[in-house]
């Protein structure tokens, strides 16, 4: 049996480079998913906060579905289902085209819709925390609906929603581990391969867990910085 040191070395003999490549994939996937999920989540929250019942219903159907399905199932549905669906659509236009929605894009879309359904709840409760008077004040000084949203509501919204969103970032980071099941070479998949090949599951799953923990620690520090920055901007006003 090789020593743990060799197994954890960088290069062709060891697995450290492979696992750090996995960490790179995990972080890029989470970073790519975040803006997508927040953007969709914001619009879903707008719909759910609307006075228009049809919009509210459409938004509620969205969150009911994507908060109710296991993330792993959503991943499979998108990975296998969306590919086949898009493929048959494209075939109508260009019969010879071969479309590939790779596992990164599938993972991004699946984690993005899950994130957005949770983010919409956070945004929604933040919307409700902003008094009506803020909108009315905006309108009374002659701002349009869009301007009121951008200049008056949004800055407060972000501050109120920030703790909830920070929590969602951590959840997103953990959920990325599921993409290992659709073949994306993230931390957990790389660790799993290493564990199988070297027959050292404890070593490699332990290492993977520690890397996730490290990412969580870095995230907490980052979140604290952002919160402090946002808090400061409030104080100086």
């Amino acid at each position: 049996m090789q020593s743990a040191l060799t197994l954890l070395s960088w290069g062709p003999e060891g697995w450290l480079d492979d696992i750090f490549y996995g960490a790179y994939i995990t972080v890029s996937l989470a970073l790519a998913t975040l803006p997508l999920g927040l953007l969709i989540g914001f619009f879903v929250a707008l719909a759910k906060n609307s006075e228009e019942p049809t919009l509210r219903l459409a938004g509620n159907i969205y969150t009911t579905i994507f908060r109710g399905l296991p993330e792993l199932l959503t991943l499979f549905l998108i990975y296998f289902g969306a590919q086949t669906g898009i493929q048959s659509l494209v075939k109508l236009i260009r019969p010879d085209a071969m479309i590939e929605v790779n596992s990164f894009v599938s993972g991004m879309v699946a984690l993005g819709v899950v994130l957005s359904s949770y983010a919409s709840e956070v945004f929604l409760s933040a919307f409700r925390a902003i008094p009506r008077g803020q909108y009315e004040g905006g309108y009374s000084i002659g701002l349009s609906g869009f301007q009121t949203m951008r200049l008056v509501v949004l800055p407060q919204l972000i501050r109120i929603a920030l703790p909830g969103l920070a929590n969602l970032w951590l959840v997103l980071l953990l959920n990325t581990a599921l993409v290992s099941a659709i073949g994306l070479s993230d931390i957990l998949r790389q660790a799993g391969i290493a564990a199988r090949v070297t027959r050292e599951p404890f070593l490699f799953f332990g290492l993977a867990t520690l890397i996730y923990l490290g990412l969580a620690v870095i995230s907490s520090i980052g979140v604290r910085q952002v919160e402090r920055a946002v808090g400061r901007s409030e104080g100086t006003r």
Binding site: L174, A177, L178, L213
Partner: peptide, 8 residues
């Protein structure tokens, strides 16, 4: 809470 349940 800081590590994935799957990894645990």
């Amino acid at each position: 809470r800081g590590t994935p349940l799957l990894a645990q």
